[in-house]
């Protein structure tokens, strides 16, 4: 995955709670077997009318929010289905980070695996930030991952992040390669600690 160290970017807002992964990427786009190219489908039912034309009422379509690398939303962002297509689509669209008071557990794991930084700020701070962005066209924010801060004109906050996830993001490391270096541990586990009946029965006897 791509490294994440610092980011200076425009910010878009999605002012609603419980943005579920069905909303981020509707099911009809999950049939593709590729990993890339999901960005054009992100928030499809919000951004596009049923006839496929852009909905000018959707803030994500407003010129001021185009090209934003950061999205700020309300609580429980990424709840619902386990589809990793959601962080793929957000990243491919151009978002490198999401700020929300809370995130769905599976979405959180998926996002950090693919290099999408999730930043949790308390509910009041998120609400204030949404208002600030809404009232300040062209508003930009800076994220500093080593320092764990988000700042912009009239705004400054620090955030918590799991040190393991932080290290992977800062280095852009592939987790599978790291784990496969632990092959000896895994093999030893299988040899010593698995019970015989845990072996799968793979054919009806």
């Amino acid at each position: 995955m791509e490294k994440f160290v610092t980011l200076e970017t425009g910010a878009a807002i999605l002012d609603r709670p419980n943005v579920d992964t069905d909303l981020i990427i509707p099911k009809q786009f999950l049939k593709r077997i590729e990993r890339g190219g999901f960005g054009r489908f992100v928030f499809n039912d919000l951004r596009f009318r049923p006839d496929g034309s852009e909905d000018p009422d959707c803030p994500l379509n407003w010129p001021r929010y185009r090209g934003a690398g950061l999205l700020v939303s309300r609580e429980n962002f990424g709840c619902g289905s386990s589809r990793e297509h959601a962080p793929w689509a957000l990243l491919d669209y151009g978002f490198r980070a999401i700020i929300s008071p809370s995130f769905g557990d599976i979405f959180r794991n998926n996002s950090f695996k693919v290099g999408l930084l999730l930043i949790e700020l308390d509910s009041g701070t998120c609400a204030a930030l949404i208002k600030l962005i809404d009232e300040s066209p062209g508003y930009r924010l800076s994220i500093d991952l080593p320092a764990q801060t988000v700042s912009g004109p009239g705004f400054s906050a620090s955030f918590e992040i799991d040190p393991f996830r932080k290290e992977l993001l800062l280095n852009g490391w592939d987790e599978i390669s790291l784990t496969l270096k632990k092959e000896e541990l895994i093999a030893a586990y299988e040899k010593k600690r698995r019970r015989p009946w845990q072996a799968a029965v793979t054919a009806a006897g």
Binding site: R83, P87, N110, I176, T179, L180, I186
Partner: peptide
Amino acid sequence: GTSEVEHVLAS
């Protein structure tokens, strides 16, 4: 998610 699926398949 799919990255974790790949991780489990591999390890």
